[in-house]
């Protein structure tokens, strides 16, 4: 994230992916959308996140796409479906639906993956604060991101603690299922206890003070940020005008 792109202001990157998402949704066909994937991959290379990008993308998207093709082309019965064997058909319409649908999924999900890989949550929270979003909202986002790894750690400790009082975590389904409550129960009760204390800790840091908040963390928009913003807006306007004229 310490790349040139990583250090851009979050709203510039956000405007950029919004543009991509809008174009992906409204440009007809599927070639443009699949090109977007290549384009995002190139930007990932440039941001130094290409490997991470591919790893994340491959984990969830391809399987979904394959299933969509199987469903649309071979299983769903369309007007032009021709039987191949038993319940398996082939449909040209299904193929077209799959191509347009999956191309949009690929384009939009790859831009979202890229966005979160090159934007610190901290920066997003800061940008939201600066744009006047309620302190409560930004507080909840920041605290969720910080808490999840802590809770995962805690759940490991709890699992150890319960194992050492004899709770089995291996064996048949019934044994394993029975372990669930002793594993999650202490986590719920202790986090509730911790919430009570955290309220005190936050009030001790003037959480409910009526004053206008300031921030010691600072992120400034650079010239490049403005260029991106203006560029994105221009592209969108040009596209809209072009579509209307058609």
């Amino acid at each position: 994230m310490d790349s040139r792109i990583g250090n851009l202001y979050p709203s510039s990157k956000f405007t950029f992916i919004i543009l991509i998402i809008l174009l992906s949704m409204f440009v007809p066909g599927f070639i443009f959308q699949y090109m977007i994937f290549l384009f995002i991959f190139l930007i990932s290379l440039f941001s130094g996140t290409a490997i991470k990008f591919l790893a994340t993308f491959m984990k969830s998207i391809p399987i979904l796409i394959i299933f969509i093709f199987i469903f649309q082309v071979f299983l769903i019965v369309n007007e032009d479906s021709q039987q191949i064997w038993a319940f398996i058909h082939f449909s040209q319409i299904g193929l077209m639906t799959s191509l347009t649908m999956t191309s949009k999924i690929v384009a939009i999900s790859s831009s979202i993956i890229w966005f979160f890989q090159v934007t610190r949550v901290k920066d997003i929270v800061y940008a939201l604060e600066q744009s006047g979003v309620s302190q409560k909202v930004t507080f909840v986002i920041a605290s969720t991101i910080q808490l999840i790894p802590q809770m995962l750690n805690l759940s490991r400790t709890i699992a150890d603690a319960q194992k050492s009082r004899g709770i089995e975590t291996e064996g048949n389904l019934f044994v394993r299922a029975k372990a669930f409550i002793p594993m999650i129960g202490p986590l719920v009760l202790s986090s509730i206890q911790q919430i009570e204390e955290r309220v005190l800790a936050l009030e001790s840091r003037a959480f409910s003070s009526k004053a206008k908040k300031t921030s010691i963390y600072e992120l400034k928009k650079q010239k490049f940020d403005y260029i991106i913003m203006i560029f994105c807006i221009l592209v969108l306007i040009v596209y809209i005008v072009w579509r209307i004229k058609l």
């Binding site: 805690l154 400790t157 709890i158 150890d160 603690a161 319960q162 194992k163 050492s164 009082r165 004899g166 409550i181 002793p182 129960g185 202490p186 719920v188 009760l189 202790s190 206890q193």
Partner: peptide
Amino acid sequence: SKMIGYVFQNPDDQIF
């Protein structure tokens, strides 16, 4: 655990 009982430092890790 039937031979060795271990009481964790933080009781809240066990109580449910």
